[in-house]
């Protein structure tokens, strides 16, 4: 029989569209992950209980909440592949692993961006930080770049956990150390965006550039490694 053919980008688009459609329909992000992140943010506020300290550490708290919540989002994005063994079907079909990786990463970036919008608003209220227009531009840029790195590592290690059936519990151990550089750079850049800890707006952009490098490296490395790591 004559086989169909399709490009890596077509596969990526199909995977991303499918993942976002499933998320839109299931509302796991809205009904479960956002409340979890909200609770984490409130608990941070209770634990530190000092406006001055909260303002100073707000950038780190926001990104820690993002990282912890991203574990749930990543696990969810691969749980939908495991529920009826769709990942095996994708493998048997010889679908481009790079396309699957890119599609998963794009869907994760979109979900994380929407998620962070709410977290930043929450931090403005809970931690009483200020955000200027210039800070907002920096923060949006930083969020996008940091998400690229988190999503790429999340898609890579999430795929590895899903392929290794039953080893999803490894995800935090694998993902959190790998994205530590993203956490550091994103926190420093967000300090500049919020104007806390004496950081100026101009000091944030070099960190944003570093995040772009991480995102590119993780994205490129993940595209190459995904197929090999997810093979049984």
């Amino acid at each position: 029989m004559t086989q169909h053919s399709t490009s890596t980008m077509s596969v990526a688009r199909a995977i991303a569209t499918k993942d976002l459609r499933i998320e839109w329909r299931s509302k796991v992000l809205v009904n479960q992950v956002l409340p979890f992140a909200g609770i984490v943010m409130v608990l941070f506020a209770f634990a530190l209980d000092n406006d001055g300290i909260l303002q100073r550490v707000a950038p780190g708290l926001v990104w820690l909440a993002v990282l912890f919540s991203s574990l749930i989002i990543v696990q969810r994005t691969f749980a939908i592949e495991s529920a009826d063994n769709a990942l095996d079907a994708i493998k048997v079909a010889g679908v481009s692993p790079a396309g699957v990786f890119l599609g998963k990463s794009v869907a994760l970036v979109v979900q994380l961006l929407l998620f962070e919008c709410v977290l930043v608003l929450l931090s403005l209220v809970l931690y009483q930080v200020q955000l200027s227009w210039g800070g907002a531009v920096l923060l949006v840029t930083v969020s996008f770049l940091a998400n690229t790195g988190i999503a790429a590592m999340g898609a890579l290690y999430g795929g590895l956990g899903a392929a290794a059936k039953g080893r999803e519990t490894l995800l935090p151990l694998l993902l959190l150390p790998a994205v530590a550089p993203v956490l550091i750079a994103a926190t420093r850049a967000t300090e500049s965006a919020f104007g806390v800890s004496g950081a100026t707006l101009g000091e944030g952009w070099p960190w944003a550039a570093l995040l772009a490098v991480f995102g590119a490296l993780f994205g490129f490395g993940g595209t190459l490694a995904f197929g090999v790591l997810t093979e049984e």
Binding site: K18, R25, S26, I80, A83, N85, D88
Partner: peptide, 8 residues
């Protein structure tokens, strides 16, 4: 298993 997406 059928390899389907249950939410679609």
């Amino acid at each position: 298993a059928n390899g389907l997406y249950l939410d679609l």
